[in-house]
């Protein structure tokens, strides 16, 4: 290291005999750089054309909406436009925080997300189990069949839930009644909403969620397993002491990504599963944004609530990423 520095200095000193010369060098460097860039654009202009449609798209459909977020601090009138509407500061936020439904919305959103996060280990367990299978038709079919529900649309999924759980004609209640139980009004009972939402999500995504873990498990060094076998480790011990630590970095990264979309998950499904009788637990921040903003036309108010939600998301993402970096050295950045 020291030698290298010396060498650098050696190279530098002959050039640095006067300040005048030095600035000249910098100037020509800059000019050269600019000229290079210019030349580069001229030479490769077609590559820049390739980029153009995507950049324009991102500008219009991502950056203009970001600019439009300011209506959260304004009293938005369509006739005045985003720029022309008057500023009102944090009024919308205050109105939201003071409202009687604020606590309910926040609680429902957090509980629903937390419930989903609690089930985060399930695909990992399933992937560890699949990984223990020898390659063959059983493994292949298990994967193909459990991946399939991933491609079912959310409308069809909710349609299936409603049909299966119908209090009179649904198969679930038919079975309950057959065994002497009493039919349960699953869809209109607020107590059931969270279970239905989260477990139907697991049904749909459990198999698909294993793909990344299986890839990580395929990368585990087989020599580790050989060595452990020689030492007399059982399969279970090898899973716990070799496989799990090997995929831990993948797990941490996926967990952080999961937290990053903590409160956004599944809003479209909530909207479909929601009805007037279960709204006590199914009213979440995003459905409320949709209702007040698009159905009632209170654009500014709804934009403020939406902004509040993305602010929480970003704070959560940064916090979890920080904790992950401190505790496990694995993080997104």
């Amino acid at each position: 290291m020291a030698i290298r520095e010396e060498k650098l200095n050696d190279d530098y000193i002959p050039l640095d005999y006067s300040g005048k010369n030095r600035s000249l060098i910098e100037k020509t460097n800059f000019r050269k750089k600019f000229k290079n860039f210019n030349k580069n654009v001229k030479k490769n202009w077609q590559l820049y054309i390739f980029l153009l449609p995507a950049l324009i798209f991102f500008f219009i459909f991502h950056y203009i909406p970001m600019y439009g977020v300011q209506i959260a601090f304004k009293d938005f009138y369509a006739t005045l436009g985003i720029w022309g509407s008057p500023w009102i500061g944090f009024d919308h936020f205050e109105r939201f925080f003071d409202s009687y439904y604020f606590f309910r919305l926040l609680k429902n959103t957090l509980l629903l997300s937390l419930y989903g996060i609690l089930l985060f280990p399930l695909p990992i367990i399933f992937a560890l189990a699949l990984n223990e299978l020898r390659n063959g038709p059983f493994k292949k079919w298990s994967q193909t069949l459990t991946y399939a529900p991933h491609f079912i649309s959310v409308v069809v999924l909710v349609g299936m839930i409603i049909a299966f759980l119908d209090p009179i004609t649904g198969i679930v209640n038919n079975i309950i009644v057959q065994f002497g139980g009493e039919a349960i009004p699953f869809l209109t009972d607020p107590d059931w909403f969270r279970h239905i939402f989260v477990w139907s999500g697991q049904w749909q995504s459990l198999g698909w969620g294993t793909i990344i873990y299986l890839a990580a498990l395929a990368g585990v060094n087989p020599e580790l397993h050989e060595a452990a076998k020689v030492d007399g480790a059982t399969r279970m011990q090898r899973i716990i002491h070799i496989n799990i630590p090997s995929i831990l970095p993948t797990v941490v990264v996926l967990f952080i990504l999961n937290i990053g979309s903590f409160m956004a998950i599944g809003f479209e499904k909530v909207l479909l599963l929601q009805n007037s009788l279960n709204s006590e637990t199914s009213d979440v921040i995003q459905t409320f944004v949709y209702e007040t903003g698009l159905l009632e036309g209170q654009y500014s108010f709804a934009a403020a609530i939406g902004l509040f939600e993305s602010a929480i998301n970003i704070v959560l993402l940064i916090t979890v990423n920080y904790l992950a970096r401190k505790t496990s050295n694995n993080s997104l950045w």
């Binding site: 995507a54 991102f58 219009i60 459909f61 909406p65 970001m66 600019y67 209506i71 993305s310």
Partner: peptide, 19 residues
């Protein structure tokens, strides 16, 4: 970065709708 930033932050439902 111009493209990746959109993964981190977006305007939300209402501003998108207005665009």
């Amino acid at each position: 970065w111009f493209i990746l930033f959109t993964m981190l932050f977006n305007g939300g439902l209402i501003p998108n709708y207005l665009v």
